[in-house]
Every structure is written in structure tokens, then in C-alpha cells.
Write a protein that binds this DNA or RNA. Structure first.
Lengths: 336, 336
DNA sequence: ATGAAAGCGCTAACAC
DNA sequence: GTGTTAGCGCTTTCAT
């Protein structure tokens, strides 16, 4: 029934080499000694036939597929390619491949994607979804699949958590602005319900307090995570009688929107208005003035995630759900 | 030996529903009729046990894994996430998942990646690698796996080819500049040996000829595919006694480099120097002035690729290796 | 150092 | 409409 031109299988190799399939298997996997002569004959047979072990059969038999699943909202969002690459940096050399699924942040699609990962018998799952309800993950946990959540908040028993140090990063950015002499510092936040908004506000306020500055609530503007959102919020803040000398933005696109407004009003950056972003997307160094920002270490997160996964896959089964926090890095450029 | 907390399998569902595994299988796959009552009992059993079919076992048995492999240089290069997403747009609804491997353009890694795709029994492969030697693909073809090559040049028997219409796009861009009144039009090309350089030069020259303009070879500058490369080449062209009024660049990063030089020399864009790019990366609309460019339809290519793959997977086995060309789209913005 | 045989979970003949 | 049986390609006892 197999509709493919029958590829050589282990039995053919065995036959050609004059040994049993068992011995071929062991020659390949090194789980028990095989005489040098036999091994050589086997290798020759493999070359001659162009044999490649069937990973699917191996996966069925062994109960591990050497595959890990990555569930993300959208690979097109520049954060995720870096994340995926970081994972592969570590997973690839360890012999694992990744299956990537995009969910658009849609809960039903997330549920389906996670289900599919179970069906596919992946050895571990990493998923990056802000709003995932814990219940949606339960099947994965029940299936005994190690899971790492990227960037959410509440940890869940059996699920490791990995995220950027949003609070610390916001504090560092704000501190940097203070250090440069700015006193009235605004914050362009994303929608409160989404992502790491709360942590960043906390960091921002903490830095202000630490410097003996008061945190004026009027200086915090909530808006969308987009260029237009940033422009809109910046416009609002500039209308204040006591307007900010500097703004820290929850992401680079918003910061670019703020820059748009500054240019349009003829405000000199950073002279009359300093702007900081968050993420360090490629565009940050492309705009003029180049954006001072906090680098969201996506690739590093991917690597750390892979290490965690590898750890869980090989032994560290239980454990109470670790939480790992990756620091962001200040990138000094021109806008602040 | 299976180290996972044994997940329910089809036999357990069958037992709980009081039928045979066969019937459960058919209830799930609809390949033969199952009575309504039986089906209901089966579905209840499935729910109760939290059963999910084991795709690995299914793959082994059926000879198809519902997986396709994507081999690319680097998911971090903004072209490829779009490509991957385009593939998933079409493949996802058809029930396929993607395994993505990055090769950094390294030939040995490419060979290994392709090998692994065979081992994993993927149902089809898409690979985007300029320099792949045909021999490296032969094993894939021999294994009977449909393959699509993205963006290379010479077609190969058994391998479909899919790429942007580089020549047409270059002609359209050049034509657009001519139409806007520019007469001395330069071309910032990538390294001759790499990628679609030749095609683009041909399109550029063809458009010039079609307008009765002569193609001055001094106006073609070869350089790297980077911002710095673009700046360097632009600088060279501006040193000409008879310098160009407009330049078409082989990619957006180069065009941004050209823009840098223009700003630095105080040249008004597009008044004193018009600039066009290629690709329409996100940054193109972020720089100032916004870049007029040709949109390289990565996502559309991904979708077309998926359709081709699906076609090959289900029947259209042989065929002499098709070639599909996707047009680029002119994006009018401010720089030309 | 090597083999024989069982079985991972599923689907597809071939019954009835 | 449903069940029995064999087998996909591999690894792993259990033998020798």
C-alpha cells in the first residue's frame, strides 16, 4: 500500500551485509558492540543501497520522535524567527527538529495546534501565547510532554516559564533616561490586558521612585502596539501643559511612531524630546535618528528554552515548574 | 520501554466502546460507513479517554506523514518567515505541518538537512538555496519525494522551480523611473555570482532599450547586498562626471544605504536623486523618505509553492519539472 | 559478538 | 456494518 518507491530498509541492508537486522541496528546506534569487520560490511551495504533509517518507524518503536513543537502567534512577527533560530541553535546539534505552527493568537487554533503536537508525539513543546488559558495546556501535560511557556505570566504546575525581564528592563531604560538628565519621563504602554504591560509599568515606576522622582500618572499613555498607536499616544502627551522631556515606549514600533510625531512638530530628538524603544527590531537602527532601545534577546530566549527542554526530555521529569528570566540589554544609539 | 505515561491508544477506545479497532479507525477516517449509534459510542469513549490518534504510527503504516520539509538558509532573514507563513497558509488547512531547517547556506548542512527530510519521511520538500548542487538533491528525488526549488536557476528533472520574476520586476522598476522622467538611471547590483543578479540586470537593460535609452555600463555598480554596500556603490556612482538622476537597487537594504548617502550629501530625494529598492521589507516604509520599491511576494511564493507541493503529493507524480514565476508588485511611495 | 521474535499504534485487505 | 489478521520499519528483550 505504501505509495512511495520503496526505499531501502534495514532488512535489505542486513541481507546485503550478511547479518541480521538487529546487528545493523546496533552498528548504527552503538548500543552494543559490533565487530569491526561486520561494521565495515554494514557501512558498505548502507552506502551501496543509499539506506537512511526510517525515523518514523524508529519514533514509533522508541516512543521518542526527536521532534519538538513550537507554537507561536505568527512567524511573520520579527520576534519569532529569532526565537525559532535560537531554539534550533541548540536543538539542531542535539539531533532534534522543530515543527512550527502559527496560531494568529486565536485560542481555537492554539488548542488545535497543541492537540496536533500531542498527536505527533513531539518530545517537548514550547509555546508563546499571552492569553493561553491553563486548561488548554492540560492535555499536553497529561500526555507527559515537557512544556515551556514563553512570555506568559502565571506559572502552572508542570510548565516551565521563560521570559524577558520586563520589569528590570523598563527600570533600566527609565534609569538611563534619568541618568541623561531627563526628569519628566513619560511611558507609552501597550494595552493593559496584553502581554507584559504591567511589569513594564512597575519597572518604570520603580526607577522613578529610586531616583526620588514622582510618578505622574498623566505621563503614562496606553495605546496599541503599533506605529500609529505610538504616534497617537505621543500626541496626547505633548498636549499636556507640563509635557514630558523623554518617553520610554513599550516597543520599537511605538517609538518610531513617537519619532514621527517629533519630526512632524519640528522637535529635535533627543534635544527637545528623547525617545527610547523596546525590542531592538531591525528597523530601530534604520530610522533617523537611530533608536536607543532595550534589546529583547529573542534568540537568547530560544536558546535557553531549548536547554530547558533538553533538560526535561532527558530525565529532569518532574520538578515544580521552573521560571527563568532573561535580561534585556541597553542599546545606546541616537534618540536618547 | 516507552518512557512516556502511556497515552490511550485505539485499542482502548475500541474496548471502551465495545467495538474493534478497525471500526474506531473508520469512524475517525470515514473510509467506510459506521452506524450512527456506534459512532456516537466511539466518540464518547474518545472524549472520556482523551484519545488522540498517534500520527507517527499512522505515518508508518500509511507511508505518508502529513509533514513537509522546508530547507532555508536562515529564518532570521525576513524573506523566509513570509515564505514559511505562505506555505502554512495553504498546507495547514490541508492537514500538513512543516519542519523547518536552517542551513546558513552551508553546503554540508544543506546535504544533512535534506538527508534528514528523507529519514523523516516527509511527503514533500521545499528548499531555498541558491547554490545547491543538483547532486545534493538527487537522494530526495530518488526517494520519490516531490521537491520544489525556490529561487534557483537551472531546473532539474524531477524538481519544480518557483521564483520571483526578477527580470520582469527589474524592467518594471526601470520603466517606472523612465516614466517619471528620469533619463540617466543607475543600477546597484548585488555580487554577480549570487542570486538573481543576472536576471535583474537583463530586465534593467531591456527597459532602457525599450525606451530608446542607451545602457551605460558605468551606471551599473556591483556591491554587497547590504546597507553599507549600497552606500558604497552609491558613492561611486555620484563621483561620475555624468551622474545618474535615479538608481534602482537590487534590494531595499542597499537602497537604504543609497538614501543615507543622499541625505549626507544634502541631495533631495526624489528631486535630485530618485531611489528604488527591491523586496519591500518592513523597513522600506519606515525610512524617510519612504522607499518606492518592488514587493517581492514572499508569502505569495509560499502559497504557490504549497499548491504545487500538494499537487505533486496527490497524484501529479511525474511531469517534467514545472517552472512557475511569480510577478513582483510596484509599491509607489516617496523616494521615486 | 550475533540472531530470532515480539511489538510500538495504526490501517487495509479480506472476510462475513 | 463490523471483525480478524497482517504488516509498515524499527529496537529490544531473550537467547545462544
Amino acid at each position: 500500500m505504501s505509495p512511495r518507491p520503496d526505499r531501502p530498509h534495514i532488512g535489505q541492508v542486513a541481507q546485503l551485509a550478511g547479518v541480521s537486522a538487529t546487528t545493523v541496528s546496533h552498528a548504527l546506534n552503538g548500543r552494543r558492540p559490533v565487530s569491526e569487520a561486520t561494521r565495515r560490511r554494514i557501512m558498505e551495504a548502507i552506502d551501496q543501497l543509499g539506506y537512511r533509517p526510517n525515523v518514523v518507524a524508529r519514533g514509533l518503536r522508541a516512543g521518542r520522535t526527536m521532534t519538538i513543537g513550537l507554537v507561536i502567534p505568527d512567524i511573520t512577527n520579527p520576534f519569532y524567527p529569532l526565537l525559532a533560530r535560537g531554539l534550533q541553535d541548540v536543538l539542531g546539534p542535539a539531533g532534534y527538529d522543530e515543527i512550527i505552527t502559527n496560531t494568529n493568537g486565536d485560542r481555537e487554533l492554539e488548542r488545535i495546534a497543541l492537540d496536533k503536537m500531542i498527536s505527533r508525539q513531539v518530545d517537548a513543546v514550547a509555546f508563546a501565547v499571552f492569553d493561553t488559558h491553563a486548561a488548554d495546556l492540560q492535555p499536553v501535560i497529561d500526555a507527559g510532554i515537557p512544556a515551556v511557556r514563553l512570555g506568559g505570566r502565571q506559572a502552572q504546575p508542570g510548565v516551565d516559564l521563560l521570559h524577558t525581564d520586563d520589569e528590570g528592563a523598563a527600570a533600566e531604560a527609565t534609569g538611563y533616561l534619568i541618568e541623561r538628565g531627563y526628569r519628566r519621563i513619560g511611558f507609552l504602554s501597550g494595552p493593559a490586558a496584553h502581554g507584559p504591560a504591567a511589569e513594564r509599568i512597575m519597572g518604570y515606576q520603580a526607577a522613578l521612585r529610586a531616583a526620588g522622582l514622582k510618578a505622574d500618572p498623566n505621563l503614562v499613555a496606553q495605546t496599541e502596539f503599533s506605529r500609529e498607536g505610538g504616534a497617537e499616544a505621543m500626541t496626547r502627551l505633548l498636549k499636556l501643559r507640563d509635557r514630558p522631556q523623554a518617553v520610554f515606549c513599550a516597543n520599537d514600533m511605538m517609538a518610531i511612531g513617537a519619532l514621527d510625531v517629533a519630526r512632524q512638530r519640528g522637535l529635535e530628538v533627543p534635544g527637545q524630546l528623547a525617545v527610547m524603544g523596546f525590542d531592538d527590531i531591525e528597523a530601530a537602527s534604520l530610522v533617523s535618528p537611530q533608536l536607543t532601545t532595550m534589546a529583547n534577546p529573542a534568540r537568547e530566549i530560544g536558546r535557553a528554552c531549548a536547554r530547558l527542554l533538553l533538560d526535561r526530555v532527558s530525565g529532569a521529569e518532574s520538578g515544580p515548574g521552573r521560571e527563568i528570566v532573561i535580561p534585556a540589554r541597553l542599546i545606546r544609539r541616537e534618540s536618547a
